[in-house]
Amino acid sequence: MSRPASREPESGSERQGISQGSDQGMLARATGARLWKDHGLLLWAHFLVPPGLAALVVAATFATPVLAGILAGAVLAIAAVSARGLLSRLSQAEEARLALTNQLIQSQKLAAIGELSAGIAHEINNPIAIIAQEAEWAAHLVGEAEKTGTADFAEVKDSLREVRAQVDRCKNITHKLLDFARKREPVLQEVDVVRIIEDMARLVDKEASYKNVTLVRDLPQDLPTLRTDAPLLRQVVLNLMTNALHAVDTGGRIQASARADGEMLEIRIADNGCGIQPENIDKVFNPFFTTKPPGQGTGLGLSMCHTLVTGMQGEISVESKPGQGATFIVRLPLRHSPLHAAGKNT
C-alpha cells in the first residue's frame, strides 16, 4: 500500500506518495545520523551518567545520609542540565529538519514549474513553427504574384487555412490549460459509487472489446453511499479507465474495484499493461507529463484527476512495477469535514 499522495495538501510535493515517503525517510535518517555525529558525547552522557550516579547514591546511602543527599542533588542537577541540553539540541535538529523539508518542497515546486513550462513550450512550439513556415510561404507566393502579375491564390489560401488550423490547435491547448486552472467548486450529493463505476465501465466496454481487453468489475453491493460531486467522480473514473485501456496490450485486463476502508472509500483501477518506469512514477500526476508519442496525449488527464480528487478532499496515488501493470488508487472521505460541507448544504 502506498502512502496517500496528499499528506501535505498545500505543498507542491504532493504529487506522488512514494517519492515523498522516501524523501521524508531519507530526511529522518539524515537528521538522526547528524544528531549522533554532532552530539554523540552528550547523548552517551545522557544515557549513562544518571544510572551511574544513581548507583553511587545507593552506595552512599549506606555510608552517610548527608553524602547521599549531596550526591542525589548532584544527580538531579546533572540529569536536568543534560536533559535540557538534549532538548534544545533536539529542537534545533527539528528546526533544521523543517528548514530542509521546506527547501525540498520549494525545489520540488520549482522543478514542477520548470517541467510545466517545458511542457507548454513543447506543445505550443510545433504549431508555431508550422504557422511561421506557412506565413513565409504565403508571403513568397504573394511576392511572386506581384512580380509576374499572374496570381494563383489557391496555394496562398491553403497556407492561410493551415495557419488558421494551427492557431486553433494552440487555442485548444490554452483552453485545456484554463479548464485545468479553473476551480470548480464541488457540489455534494449522495452518490452510489458502484453505479458510477458501472456506468463508466459500460462506456469503456465497447472500446475495450475492440482491443480484446476485458474490464473486470469487483464491486461489492453493500458499499455505503458517498457524499461527493458526481460528475467530477465520473470524470476521474472515466479518465483512469481510459488511461488503463491505453496502457494495456491486446488481450489485456483491467480491473475496477471499490471498497470501504474505515473512514475512506477506496476505488482501484488496475491494469496489467506495461506499468510505469520507476523514474517516471513520481511524475505521472505532473501536468504535461506523458509517455505517449507527441500528438497522442496532452499529458493532462492524470494531473486533472489529481486536481479533481484533491478538490473532493480525497487522495490519489499509484502503485506500479514495470512490466506488471499499474494500479491507480483513489481514496475519498466517507464523511466530508463539516467545514467544507457547511458552505454548500446549509
Binding site: 479548464d179 470548480r184 456506468d199 463508466m200 459500460r202 462506456l203 469503456v204 466496454d205 465497447k206 472500446e207 458526481a230 460528475p231 465520473r234 470524470q235 472515466l238 479518465n239 481510459t242 485501456l245 486533472m304
Partner: peptide, 17 residues
C-alpha cells in the same frame, strides 16, 4: 459508446452519460 466523445462530454461538464 464512443469513449472519446464520452471523455470529452464529461470534461466539458456534462452531468452524466
Amino acid at each position: 459508446a464512443s469513449l472519446e466523445a464520452g471523455m470529452q462530454g464529461m470534461n466539458l461538464g456534462a452531468y452524466d452519460y
